[in-house]
Amino acid sequence: MVYVIRRLLQALFLALVMSFLVFAGIFAVGNPVDILIDPDATQAERARLIAQLGLDRPFHQQYFIFLGNVLQGDFGNSFVYNRPALGLILERMPATLELAFAAIMIAVVLGIPLGLYAGLRHGSVGSQAIMAGSILGFSVPNFWQAIILIMVFSVALGWFPVSGRGEVGEFLGIRSSLFTLNGLHHIALPAINLAVGHLALVIRLARSGTREVQAQDFIRFARAKGLSESRIVLVHILRNILIPIVTLVGMSFGGLIAFAVVTETIFAWPGMGKLIIDSIRLLDRPVVVAYLIVIVVIFIILNLLVDLLYSLIDPRIRLDGARQ
């Protein structure tokens, strides 16, 4: 419990530091007034608007006003849409979350068994094929993969739609396109595109973990106990290789949410990534700031979850955490 509280305090501090960095970074980019004000406006009008936006105040005052507003959930209005920036982002978040979730599921559900197989049957043709595929998986550029996927599966074979998000279904109060056939049909290609690199990493981690754990005395002892091969692999080996995989999944998930930009753009997926690219292009500062803060918070939450998961998987970590 002490451990959790300490981690939460760390997380709060981190969020504060990040808010400062984000604000300072955006402050350094330049004066938004130049974009906001009609070039034909008079000097008096300019001064009035600057004062109204608070841009005439010193940096630290601006920061504290910003922080105060953020703590009340107010990130300001988008210059482009003239609506609350946070609302815009939260509106797009489900689309990005479901895409990232689908990609991670593909990476884990395929990656762990493939990696286990490659580790257990080290040196076999199947294992070598998997490893060669995984090298291909994370060395082929993402955007190129996306284009090839579209060309082959959408244009040439016509199996999947070219772009866009399908129908949204509702299940247990969650609205997601994962709950309709049409939605799944639409998400397949972008999810695969996002998953490939991470799939390759999961395979490699699972394989190296399996090979390492397999040589341990406790696996030999498990064999000596007469356990079935499936129990040895699925319980004794799998539990031991989960830690690096959980780390990777946690980090990847954050990365997928924050940087699904390329995939979302190519597949015209209406998620946060596409919004942020548009906002950067239009210098829509409140949206950019709100986006960065949201991403920081997501990363912090994911890190926390990963650390808590560790202690569930590996009992030794629980003890060490409590002792410190």
Binding site: D217, F218, F221, A224, K225, G226, L227, R239
Partner: peptide, 19 residues
């Protein structure tokens, strides 16, 4: 194995699965 013939190994720190 483990039923009619059992085996014990050298390093007790390594023979039990840590997780």
């Amino acid at each position: 194995r483990g039923a009619r013939i059992a085996m014990i190994f050298q390093d007790p720190m390594m023979t039990l699965n840590p997780v």
